[in-house]
Amino acid sequence: MVGPNLKVLVVDDSALMRKALKTMLTADGDVEVVLARNGEDALDVLSREAPDVVTLDVNMPVMDGLTCLARIMAEHPVPVVMVSSITEQGAVTTLEALELGAVDYVAKPGGTVSLNLSEAAEEIRRKVRRAAASRVRPGSLTARLRRQREEAHAASRAGRAPRARAVPVAGGGTRPAGPSGSGTTDLVLVGSSTGGPALLSALLSQFPADFAAPVVIAQHMPASFTGALAHRLDASCPLAVQEVTGLVPVLPGHVYVARGDADVVLGRRGGDLVVRPAPAGAAHRWHPSVDRMVASAMEHVDPARTVGVLLTGMGDDGAEQMAQLKARGGRTVAESEETAVVWGMPGQLVARDGATRVLPADQIAAQVLAWG
């Protein structure tokens, strides 16, 4: 529980960066900052100071950021914001950190530290405060779903079908989740933000290779990270995953990740469904915009044959258009408050009476498959 003052532990091996982050975070006057030079030092300070949030550098001597993060999640679970470079390797490492349980990340500025940090100050302060209000998720969902996949694989090798999992459906009751549904879904749209990358990996890993509908994802991220996200999802799930960098046909059983710092829209070319990036516009606050993705989809795909899924994230992006999707006969899922890192976007969908189902994260994929 955060009291009148927010205590932040800043972990970085650079004295200049520690000083800059401290100056930036204490600018509002209600934040106390404690410092650590590396991961080993951070664990010691963490046990003594009990901070509300940790900002954690990735590359440090003695103990690196990922090792430290894993120890934090196991020994002293607390919201962690990673401070990462925007290089390709930095993006990959950041996604690993998010799967380990980090709440969010900020790009470490390059070049002149004082100038770049000044420009990034508002974002870092905002994300630290957002993290303080979030729920810590130390990878328990991913581990649980991995065990389920291993059990299913073992059952398959033993020559027996894995037990069908009964899932709740709209209108009450349950039905088993079939391998590829009943063919009533032409398109699945997924929106997520803070806490989303790890959940997307867990969600898509439950989809079978013969899942018939295409999936389009709008995850709030900069362009320097969405390519790495698509590559990571492609390696961890049975479906083919790609980043949307140009106009591409939408194919059954494929997953399309919107490119960061832009929006993604669906359309028709020669009668075939296509997806393409679109310049981020001032009409939408967050990008890639979930609302814009869903609105464009409803122009070209029968809403009654569309499924919308709104996952964890701050704000209300996607809530209005997914509520419209439901009103026009579509089916929607809002992640429940009990598992969401931040129950902003899905909570707003529920507030608009726009959710057909409100489900914890580990039941969402089964529900989508049941609707098939």
Rank of each mutant, 00 (worst) to 15 (best):
Q321V: 12
T306W: 02
G173T: 09
P168D: 01
H284D: 13
R146K: 15
K7Q: 14
G191W: 08
G39A: 01
E122V: 11
T55V: 07
I124Q: 00
V190E: 02
A230W: 01
S296F: 13
R149Y: 03
Q363W: 06
V216P: 15
S140Y: 07
D263F: 14
A121Q: 11
R276F: 05
V128H: 02
Q324H: 13
A327M: 15
A27Y: 12
E96V: 03
A282D: 13
T55N: 04
Y256R: 07
A235G: 09
M24N: 12
R232W: 04
A36M: 02
T23W: 12
E150M: 14
P288V: 06
G172R: 05
G139E: 07
V34A: 13
L310S: 05
L6E: 06
G111C: 06
V250L: 07
L233R: 09
E96P: 00
T332D: 06
K19Y: 03
M322D: 04
G330T: 05
G354W: 00
E320T: 15
A132D: 12
L6N: 08
E99P: 00
G281Y: 12
T194R: 04
L239Y: 01
V248S: 03
S84V: 09
P138R: 13
L6Q: 07
A334N: 08
V62D: 04
G90V: 08
W343V: 04
V341W: 05
V275I: 02
A158S: 11
A209R: 10
I86C: 06
L100Q: 10
R352P: 02
D353M: 10
Q324M: 14
R125G: 00
S201V: 04
V333I: 15
E299Q: 15
G281I: 06
T112S: 11
G173S: 11
E123F: 00
E40R: 14
L66K: 08
P77M: 06
V342S: 12
P138S: 10
Q363L: 15
E151S: 08
S201E: 14
G253E: 12
S236W: 02
V34F: 13
E122G: 11
P222T: 11
T142E: 12
L117W: 07
V54D: 04
L229D: 09
R125H: 00
R144Q: 14
A209C: 00
W286P: 00
A177G: 06
D30E: 15
W343N: 09
Q206A: 08
A295V: 10
A351Y: 11
S85N: 11
A240I: 10
R147K: 14
V307Q: 13
S182Q: 13
G191V: 06
A70P: 12
V33H: 07
V78H: 00
T55E: 05
A218K: 12
S140D: 13
R129I: 01
D302P: 01
N59D: 09
M63E: 06
S84H: 09
A102Y: 05
V215I: 15
D52L: 04
E320M: 07
A370M: 09
Q324P: 00
A202G: 15
M1N: 10
L6M: 11
A283M: 08
G260P: 01
V11R: 00
A202N: 10
L141D: 05
A27D: 10
Q363R: 15
